[in-house]
Simulated assay, not measured.
Amino acid sequence: MIPIKIPREEKLEIIANIQNHFYREMSDEIGDLAAENLLDFMLKELSPHIYNQAIKDARTTVEQKMMALEEDLYALEKPIR
């Protein structure tokens, strides 16, 4: 699977959020490198699961739209005597 690429500005914001979380929840500080390594690890581990769920959700949405389209098409049919 292709790794997720996050723009640098967003990555820095996420790293800051990880650091704030560690401080709030564990009263512990985590450095920039440790937070970035944790983010990279979590992305590597979670990305396939999140991707697969997104595909499943998209599949469900497309199936629902196709069913609705099929119903609309049947409704357009003209009766034949």
Score class of each variant (00 low, 15 high):
Lys5Gln: 08
Leu39Asp: 03
Asn17Val: 11
Glu13Trp: 05
Asp40Trp: 03
Ser27Trp: 11
Pro3Asn: 03
Ser27Met: 15
Gln53Ile: 03
Glu70Asn: 08
Met67Pro: 04
Glu36His: 14
Glu9Asn: 12
Leu38Phe: 13
Leu33Tyr: 10
Leu46Trp: 12
Lys56Tyr: 08
Ala68Asp: 05
Met67Ile: 11
Ile18Ser: 01
Asp32Tyr: 12
Lys56Asn: 05
Glu10Gly: 01
Glu10Asp: 07
Lys65Tyr: 14
Thr60Ser: 10
Ser27Ala: 14
Ile50Phe: 08
Glu25His: 05
Asp28Val: 15
Leu73Gln: 13
Asn17Trp: 06
Asp32Asn: 14
Pro48His: 09
Ile4Ala: 14
Asn20Phe: 08
Ile55Lys: 02
Gln19Cys: 04
Leu39Tyr: 07
Arg8Lys: 15
Glu70Val: 01
Leu69Lys: 07
Asp57Pro: 01
Leu76Gln: 15
Ile55Val: 04
Phe41Gln: 10
Tyr51Pro: 07
Tyr51Arg: 15
Phe41Lys: 13
Arg8Phe: 09
Glu70Ala: 05
Glu70Gln: 05
Leu73Ile: 13
Phe22Met: 10
Asn20Gln: 12
Asn37Lys: 10
Asp32Glu: 15
Glu36Cys: 14
Met1Leu: 09
Ile50Ala: 08
Pro3Trp: 02
Glu9Pro: 00
Tyr23Pro: 00
Lys11Asp: 00
